[in-house]
Amino acid sequence: MTGSRKRWRAAACVLAAAFALPAAAQTYPTQSIRLIVPYGPGQATDVMCRVFAEQLKVVLKQNIVIENRVGAASNLGSAEAAKAAPDGYTLLCTGSATHVANPLLYSSMGFDPDKDLVPITGIAATGYVLAAGPKLRDKSLKEVVALAKTSQPPLKMGLASTTARVVFEMFRQAASVSTMTNVPYMAGNRDLFPDLLRGDTDLVIEAMPSAMGSLTGGQVAAVAVTLPERSPLLPKVPTFKENGFDLQLVGWNALYAPRGTSPEIVARLNAAGREALKHPEVAKRLEAVACVPMPTSPEQLSKMIAEDRAKWKPIVEEYKLKAN
């Protein structure tokens, strides 16, 4: 984006904010809110955003219309939200990839996630799980690692997202495993667990919401989770940390507004979002999909973005992961 356009937009934002302020402070929202979800309907982020939005509607006493704008790994829809009028009537609900992974992976996202969006609140958090197929399912994490170091041909690891790929590289570093074959499932995770079950792959790393169904079957078993503590849904599964591996990663999603949205509206949305997340029904539904509510202040959210990105950066650079 050119500098002059940026300046023009900044000026427009200030103007818009100035007009919006007196009315907004007391009565926002007075009309229905457009919530852009840059993922397809039914994907994990979409389901979480819908659960959240359903309760946010009640708190704000205003309708929320979800618009799925799929494309370019969430970049298209997020760019659209970033460019919308900063009046509080267009918001964005997206996963951590938009702010953590994509700035590292994409040379151009069509917008700047740090400068064009303001964080409002975190929504939900989840972890990643390392799971083993029939051949390795009775082994502990340490046994799996020992096997991975010596196995010939190398063990095959199924991965269905960029984040899973990054966890995989973190795992290889933390466990000093040099040879392992990466089997990508980037078009979707449909065959990830069937292939593991059949023995076409030996291990997978997958986000917990997508993995839970297959883990309850007994034929594949969770080996470890990337959470800081054990998950209440998988109480017997250890964390990487307790086994002495320096590997911890939480995936989360959050609510944003276009830059220039008045601080009053951001504060109102933050309060409303936190209240919505406190509702027991929301917690229950999020827990059902292996997530926990993650209400934060805008500042905490910014800090999380910066920390996660710092953690990812060396891996993305070392393995030359690149999107376009």
């Binding site: 397809g40 994990a44 659960v51 449909r190 069937p194 839970m212 169904g213 309850t216 007994g218 059902a288």
Partner: peptide
Amino acid sequence: LGIPANAVMALMIGALTIQGIIPGPQ
């Protein structure tokens, strides 16, 4: 098996998990 044949099935799995039912062998 919890394997969706298409996007609609993926949504139904989503709907079921929110209800606390995880599609799978049991």
